[in-house]
Amino acid sequence: MRDAAARNQAQETQERRDFLVFRVGAQEFCVDVLAVKEVRGWTPTTSLPKVPSFLRGVTNLRGTVLPIVDLGDRLQIACDTAIEDRIVVVVWIDRKLLGLLVDAVCDIVTAGDKNLQAMPDLTGEPIHTSVTSLITVDGRVIGLVALDQILADTRSQNA
């Protein structure tokens, strides 16, 4: 929701926004920094029964039960870092917290509307539901993760 709200705001005011860029395999993705609560190291998760494999499990974030999405699994990109060296980007989605498991955090980029482009139609590709826009900055092409979509099809996959 925050992400969507931030997006709307950007469209209206042409403001430039900051994005946290991270790496999954060799590819770069990002989320709006306003949605990021914190970045932390990997801690062991407790597996959940009968959920899609990308829902890696839950972990303890200072007393809160934090679900962890394995972004590599979600986007079907092979991660290249050992599990204990990976990074969890904790984001807000509709007032709930979610951890995104990524290979590494890269940097923060600033982008305006002119840098933002809707994802071309890639129907059928695993990426098309969860990465809906592209940001092009300094020759880099960074996929913007649609946070409100990241868990959207857990139900259908589960059924």
């Binding site: 062991p44 998760t45 407790t46 959940l48 029964p49 009968k50 959920v51 829902l55 499990g57 839950v58 972990t59 303890n60 007393g63 039960v65 679900p67 989605i93 709930k96 979610l98 868990l151 959207a152 857990t154 139900r155 589960n158």
Partner: peptide
């Protein structure tokens, strides 16, 4: 509660003394 999705067979979670869920 993960995206309003209920985990089959699981009512809730807790955090154990060792910090694990």
């Amino acid at each position: 509660e993960i995206n309003c999705h209920r985990i089959a067979g699981i009512a809730a979670a807790t955090i154990l003394g060792n910090g694990l869920v």
